[in-house]
Amino acid sequence: MSDAAAHEFQFASAEHQRETAISGIWLFLATEALFFGPIFLSWIFARHADPSAFDVGGRRTDLTIGLANTALLIASSFAYGVGLALIGFGRRRGMVAWLAIAWALGAAFIGLKFGVEWRTELSEGLFPGAHFSIHGPARSGAQLFFAFYFFATALHGLHLLIGLGLLAWIIIQAERFTAENHTPVHVVGLYWTFIDVIWLILFPLIYLIGRAS
């Protein structure tokens, strides 16, 4: 495994194997993008049904946490990039340190999102259904917003959790990786940043559009 020239029997060379793995993960990310497609389309449909009521829901979100979380994810992608660059120069210890930072930033996102933000929202009765706490003419639209909100953030959070697992796996396996041979680090990094990209789209849909004029 640690032999730099090793490759599986269907490939012509180690470089061939690396290239194939990278294109494989990109195609997988393309499927992931389409996977989130229905969420974006539901946002369009739901908001279009009654924009002002939908925005009433949007304004009940916690902008501070949303902002903090966005910053966390951007920083985390940055940290991962540094880690990946370091292993490219064979600096394994440095890689582990930066990947650990990336992991911690991602974990902080999860903590804020589900430990704080969701908790508050659930206790304030913002989960759609009979006990929904927003009343008046905007009740329906706001429920629609929160149905979208909880679903979308749960799905995104799930991806992030899987990402945390993969990152931990890379860190544990760090011994395996060398300057020439670290395709898994690259592959997981692409997935990690992709989760960030999805959030960069979700963030304005949840927190900003409802507050803009």
């Binding site: 739901a46 759609p128 259904g129 009740r139 329906s140 639209g141 149905a147 679903f151």
Partner: peptide, 11 residues
């Protein structure tokens, strides 16, 4: 309840 639910304006 959900985004397809016409009762809350879903489609």
């Amino acid at each position: 309840i959900g985004v397809f639910d016409p009762a809350i304006g879903g489609d």
